[in-house]
Simulated assay, not measured.
Amino acid sequence: MALKSSKTCYGRMAVLMHWFVAIAILVLIPLGFRMSATTDMVLKAGLLKAHAAIGLMVFAITIARIVWWWFADRKPEDLPGTPKLQSRVAHLTHTALNLIILVMAISGIRMMVLINNGLGGSDQMFGPMKAHGVAAFLLIMMLTFHVAAALYHQFILKDKLFARIGIGRMPAV
């Protein structure tokens, strides 16, 4: 697999960034819910440190992904025969996922700043907490849609979509 993407599949850099972010988010979501649900302040502090560290890595890699796509690489072409509406929905979904990740990261950073400045219990905390919670809900919805679409392509349409993002082999052309 080449470093950069081809017309048919994503390159090594895009694949690595995609799967790192995907796995990290699958860790962040339950970590965030567990952190929110616990009343044990020692546990909450430990979970918060882990959640914040992983979240900052996801933020940095998401920024790197955006920069990568703008300046260094081009995404593969749509699969042959993809209807225009489906293509538009896929592109909007990917854009929405990146925007939601950015909102989550920025609101999380804002909460950490408020906490570190002794304002964790203040009214100022409500805005970032609300944004983070709404974004978490939207992220879960969008991820569910994204994964369902990928599974539909792979197992119903059998178009080897997973191979484009590093799982399996692309069919010979």
Rank of each mutant, 00 (worst) to 15 (best):
G108D: 07
A45E: 09
D40P: 10
M104I: 09
K160L: 01
Y152K: 14
F59K: 00
L79I: 04
K84E: 06
F126A: 07
H51Q: 03
N117T: 13
I115M: 14
W68H: 10
M142S: 12
F145T: 07
R164A: 03
L26D: 02
V58G: 10
W19Y: 11
R88F: 10
I25Y: 13
G81L: 03
L97K: 11
S87F: 00
H146N: 05
A135V: 12
L102N: 09
I29Y: 04
F126S: 05
I165S: 02
I63F: 14
M170E: 09
G108E: 05
L157D: 07
I109N: 05
L47W: 09
I54F: 04
D123Q: 14
G127K: 14
M111C: 08
L79D: 00
A90R: 10
T8A: 12
W70H: 07
M104R: 08
I165V: 08
M35I: 02
G121Y: 13
L3H: 02
N98T: 09
R34P: 00
P76G: 12
M104S: 10
K7Y: 07
F33Y: 15
V103I: 15
W69Y: 12
K130I: 09
K75M: 11
T144A: 15
L102Y: 07
R88V: 05
R169I: 01
F71N: 01
M1F: 04
I61F: 15
H51W: 06
L139G: 07
V58R: 12
V173P: 15
D123C: 06
Q154E: 14
G120D: 07
W69T: 06
F126N: 06
A2C: 00
L139N: 10
M141A: 14
D123N: 14
S36W: 10
I23W: 10
F155L: 09
G11F: 02
I54L: 12
S5N: 03
A149P: 02
V27H: 07
G46M: 13
G55W: 01
L85M: 05
G120P: 11
L119H: 07
L119Y: 06
